[in-house]
Write a protein that binds this DNA or RNA. Structure first.
Lengths: 144, 144
DNA sequence: TATTGTTATACTCTATAACTATA
DNA sequence: TATAGTTATAGAGTATAACAATA
């Protein structure tokens, strides 16, 4: 027996959040995947391969993705000093500014969505969301 | 002051749910937008224009989307009897079966994600998610 | 004239397969 | 031989602009 109401609510909620992310990106001509790319690069300087794992994309897709972002001055490629096959990707000043600004707008947008909830309800929602997320990590590890 | 922890949790949760949807679709060679298309058509027989509003896409994008789904035997076009400019889109038997089966798999997947929560916590999460969603509807109406 | 839908075009995004350079 | 990344190719998905048919 599945909880139809909860399943539907989580599906709708996920679309609400993803649409917000997509719209904020679109205001700067960024697709959702470019938003995710900048999001990853805010805190990491991964290799092309690591980037592919993070985003769940083939290495050839990453090549094109980074090409287009680089063409717009958002990221740069740097050669690894230890293994000359390896390329690291980093975010530029411009990309960083865009990512930081977008993250702030996103945070405000989501905050406005939960503004009607009491402080206690917001804490509860945070706790329950984390529980579902950690459950999700466990599930995806099982399928490795 | 924005609630960083809640914002992050909702973002992560949205990716968890959307990835599940995308993976289930991919098992039948359906993209996320094709999944959404079939989802809408399960309960409606909209015109091309209405479909565009539902999915937030331009009418030209809908033409291509429906073309590809029709080529695969998932949907059909029917002429409106009252206005000869208008085309209605309906789901086929094959599409219906696919959509119903996918919805069941999705429901099971999400249910397994929340299986660790108590019944009370699941009820609370349902309530809070609905509150955020209705807040989101209100917000998007304001921007009309 | 206004509206519905299609078509032409251009670009992003994605995977597969073949390739190059390095290990 | 194996691995990291690129390139060639093909297809889905998207929007803009121009178009045809109908209202």
């Amino acid at each position: 027996m599945t909880d139809t109401d909860l399943v539907d609510a989580l599906a709708q909620l996920s679309f609400l959040v993803q649409n917000a992310l997509a719209e904020i990106g679109a205001q700067h001509d960024l697709s959702l995947v470019q938003v995710r790319l900048l999001g990853v690069l805010r805190d990491h300087e991964p290799t092309m391969q690591e980037l592919g794992r993070h985003l769940g994309l083939d290495k050839s897709s990453i090549s094109g993705l980074v090409d287009r972002a680089q063409r717009r001055g958002l990221v740069t490629r740097t050669a690894s000093p230890v293994d000359r096959r390896v390329t690291h990707v980093s975010i530029t000043e411009t990309g960083q500014r865009l990512a930081t600004e977008g993250a702030a707008v996103f945070a405000e947008h989501i905050s406005s969505l939960v503004a009607g909830l009491s402080a206690a309800d917001r804490r509860t929602l945070t706790r329950l969301a984390h529980q579902v997320i950690s459950n999700g990590s466990r599930v995806s590890e099982e399928h490795d």
